[in-house]
Design a protein around this nucleic acid. Structure first.
Length: 590
RNA sequence: GGCCCCGUAGCUCAGUUGGAUAGAGCAGCCGCCUUCUAAGCGGCAGGUCACAGGUUCGAAUCCUGUCGGGGUCGCCA
């Protein structure tokens, strides 16, 4: 039950009656106004700006917004759930609900359990592509942010009733995987006892390739040593990519992240009937006249020293909102990354996704417009692509940046960080920030189990709630604390203002979920559970000075049950929110 | 130079898609454990929402420009 959504509907109905009387235009967009909690709680439980939003359209029949507001408020006051509806300021309508509405919400939350706040499933298929780190080495912290963000966003959307496919795009087709293969081949020779010396500049020097080299030696003995590169490269490449993907999957598993689909870029360049998927898209677009041969102006600012003005195959992305047309074929005749990316997104569309989200690093920001242009072109405007850019992670320790050696292979891996601070802390910390703001990740702070750390703060609230229920069982042995039983408690006994505040916050959960899912912003869930935890801790502490407010009251079984109902639904909402974030909700923290 | 993101309290950040008197947490100061977990709570102090215009009943939020920080700029991925 979402009281905000319900009143949105009821107010829309009131407006439609006014429309029926020809006092508002028939084509009024009834989704323009909002119903939200007023910033100042003394204003009531709900506030709507409906009268002000439609001020212009109302001019003909109403002398000012307040007059329209007065009429809506009058109609609202007849609603059996409304205690009071009054006009304030320039035309706000403040609504006070009858207490039993909140009893209903609470009962609803208990019975729905972890499904509370879940809207009716729309079943819309949505593809979320995230991580997509190159299969050339272990994941670093920056990858981790995108991974956690994409995973939480997927969970959020799934909770909001979408059919979510979590996808990983393996960049296994570029020059970087050939370098990987050469690097692995060196490790192979090393495993066979050769002294390989320093890894040459440009290859991947990390020790993580040693096991792959060893495995190659075990599988092929000395058979590859004397062959020319052209003969061993595809084999070693495939082998090394598999090894790297296994490693990346392990890194992801350490963060409880799983993908449904691993999509290989290389598979797009495999020919069936003489044509590969990339060629086929280019041909399609060319047939429609939006791929052409032409010249690009040289880039502004500093000119690359190897700039060569030449005619090339261009996609007319300017027709679809991009600033410049984009090349599809490299000077060596291979496809550009963009070309295969068009084929890749077409594959998503062909697989039934009209709604796609890509999670990228901020360094790919310049790529967003062309990709969206391509999706528009390929789908004929039917499909939409939202790109979420995750900003840099600044890794710190005690306020000092963690030094990362320039020499590759010596960076701090995601795995090291997870092992040091734990999954819950990494995930929450990365989600407790908007994706497009840079993230300061201080290992010392993240690991600190204290008030300084929002992870433990929220988890503690959950544990504390569970503990209250345990304590209640001591005072009332055999008490039925199942959600079904608690839903039957006399919830009207929750009359204290601070208790009511908690219930009202719980009532906001469905609305927060809806907004977060709509905006593709999982951080809102993190902030919401934090706020809920804060209100709970605050209320709990009131019981210190005012023992009559404590949850467990040995003389009042009925009151205790009502309060346990509150605590129970509160822990359910915390657990639900934390589950979306992929953070555990422990029953105790000692 | 073009494009994208950011600029809110000393620091790290929220701000319900344009709403009412801009909020948290740290850091600072003053309090609270014979209390269902003090991993907690209450209070004080802290602001020209970078700047200047514009849009309207109403702007931290939208538009234009300026300044500052970051990213990116044919064939890398």
């Amino acid at each position: 039950m979402n009281v905000f959504a319900e009143f949105q509907t009821r107010i829309a109905y009131i407006l439609s009656r006014i429309i029926a009387e020809d006092r508002l235009p028939a084509d009024l967009d009834l989704s323009r106004f909002v119903v939200e909690p007023p910033r100042d709680p003394s204003h009531g439980d709900l506030a709507t700006n409906a009268a002000m939003v439609y001020a212009k359209e109302a001019k003909a029949s109403f002398s000012n917004p307040r007059q329209l507001a007065t009429e809506i408020a009058y109609a609202l006051a007849q609603d059996s759930d409304v205690a009071q509806a009054e006009v304030a300021g320039p035309g706000f309508i403040n609504i006070k609900l009858k207490p039993e509405v909140y009893s209903r919400v609470l009962r609803d939350a208990l019975l729905a359990g972890l499904d509370f706040g879940k809207p009716a499933a729309s079943g819309e298929a949505i593809n979320v592509e995230y991580v997509s780190a190159n299969p050339t080495g272990p994941m670093h912290v920056g990858h981790g942010r995108g991974a956690v963000f994409g995973d939480a966003l997927s969970s959020l959307l799934a909770f909001a009733g979408k059919k979510v496919t979590r996808e990983y795009y393996i960049n296994d087709a570029g020059a970087q995987v050939d370098l990987l293969a050469r690097s692995a081949f060196l490790r192979y020779r090393e495993a066979l006892g050769e002294s390989i010396g320093e890894i040459p500049e440009g290859l991947y020097p990390g020790d993580y390739l040693k096991p792959a080299g060893k495995a190659l030696a075990d599988a092929h003995g000395r058979a590859l040593l004397d062959k020319p590169e052209a003969d061993w490269l595809p084999l070693v490449r495939g082998f090394a990519i598999d090894a790297m993907m296994d490693m990346i999957r392990e890194d992801l598993a350490a963060l409880n992240i799983k993908h449904d689909v691993f999509f290989s870029e290389r598979s797009l360049t495999i020919k069936t009937n003489g044509v590969d998927a990339v060629r086929s898209v280019i041909d399609d677009l060319a047939a429609r006249g939006i791929v052409y041969q032409g010249r690009l102006p040289p880039p502004k600012g500093q000119l690359p020293d190897d700039w060569e003005d030449r005619e090339q195959t261009l996609f007319k992305s300017t027709d679809f909102g991009d600033d410049i047309d984009r090349p599809l074929i490299k000077s060596d005749g291979g496809y550009t990354y963009f070309a295969s990316d068009i084929a890749y997104h077409k594959s998503k569309i062909d697989r039934g996704f009209n709604s796609m989200i890509d999670v990228w690093g901020a360094d790919h920001g310049g790529y967003v417009k062309r990709m969206q242009a391509a999706v528009k072109a390929v789908s004929g405007g039917k499909a939409s692509l939202d790109v979420k850019l995750c900003q840099l992670v600044k890794l710190m320790r005690d306020g000092e940046p963690v030094k990362m050696s320039k020499r590759a292979g010596d960076f701090v891996t995601l795995r090291e960080v997870v092992d040091e601070v734990g999954v819950d802390a990494v995930r929450f910390w990365m989600l407790f920030r908007k994706n497009d703001a840079t993230l300061e990740f201080d290992l010392a702070k993240v690991i600190e189990q204290s008030k300084d750390n929002p992870v433990f703060y929220v988890q503690y609230a959950h544990a504390r709630g569970r503990s209250v229920i345990k304590q209640a069982l001591k005072a009332f042995p055999g008490l039925d604390v199942s959600t079904a039983a608690l839903a039957n408690a006399n919830l009207d006994l929750l009359t204290d203002e601070s208790e009511a505040g908690l219930v009202k916050l719980i009532a906001q959960y469905p609305r927060q979920i809806e907004a977060a899912a709509l905006a593709h912003e999982p951080h809102r869930v993190a902030f919401f559970v934090h706020e809920l935890a804060s209100s709970f801790h605050s209320h709990w502490n009131r019981g210190k000075d005012q023992p009559q407010l404590r949850f467990v009251n040995e003389e009042r079984r009925d009151l205790t049950c009502a309060r346990l109902a509150l605590v129970n639904s509160l822990t359910l909402v915390l657990a639900s929110g934390l589950a979306i974030l992929g953070v555990s909700a422990p029953d105790e923290m000692r």
